[in-house]
Amino acid sequence: MKRRFVETIALALLRGTAFAVLLATILLIGSIVRGGAGVITWEFLSATPTEGMTHGGIFPAIFGTICITLLMIVMALPLGVCAAIYMVEYAGSSGLARVIRASVNNLAGVPSIVFGLFGVGFFILFIGRSIDRVRGGGLLFGQPAMLWAAATLAVLVLPVIIVNTAEALTAVPRSHREASFALGATRWQTVRRVVLPQARAGILTGSILSVSRGAGETAPILFTGCAYFLPRLPIVHLGVPFTGLSVPMVNPLDQFMELSYHIFIMATQSTDAAATRPIQYGTTLILVALTFILNLAAISLRVRYRRGLESR
């Protein structure tokens, strides 16, 4: 009798917590959608902020977010995948491998503001200023820029990519590696032709998840490149020699606006925070939607990957 009573209580508690999580999510998304859906118009998505950010759109922030995310993934993905391949396929369980594994795990636990400060100290003041000194002719690299912000974010998402890639590599059956070695393949041929093709979907899923983590971060870019207000886009027109034409190109040395930072600025730094509230909601909705789409993409990839494995 007593056991059954405890069982009922336990079930009620567990079910309650599960519903609490669900409820919190619904409330959060609900309030964002309710507050933000009304301001989403074509103009909101395509115009620049005006009148102290109380009017206009958020296009420069959307553009900046997309640019910096792409730049981040271009930097982090090759580095992370290579490190994971080394860890799983080459290093085995040697002392060096253990040290690398430990530092990756530690890197994953560092608060993001620390990455922001590291970005200023390492990328801007050390690397950037060094380049400027060698180059001569004033400050160009040694100041906050999209390049450094993306590099800082890349360091932040590196552990996510490494861990996910390592997991995808480890999931490839040992028997396939053995078969490859037994046919006379070298280690690299085995990685390149047997392991990577099978791990590709898993690696892709991991990197998309890392993008959705990085895209929403504010702290790492706070000091490294994002701008309070920049009505123009970080674009430079490069002349094509002998043609007289000029091609617009994203300028990685320019500053940029970014969605999460834009929300932070409007909420805390605006002269009229109350007047920016609808825009804050709208911006948040767009940011959440972007991350949500990326997560959906990762999930559908994973589902397709699993299904692919089963049919094999």
Partner: peptide
């Protein structure tokens, strides 16, 4: 590499690669 080319091996459990039939043999 040369040793293992000269000495082929069949394992306890068939372990074809998740590739096409052609690609398995052409590997």
């Amino acid at each position: 590499v040369d040793l293992r080319r000269r000495v082929g091996m069949l394992f306890q459990k068939a372990n074809p690669f998740p590739k096409s039939i052609f690609e398995n043999v052409a590997f």
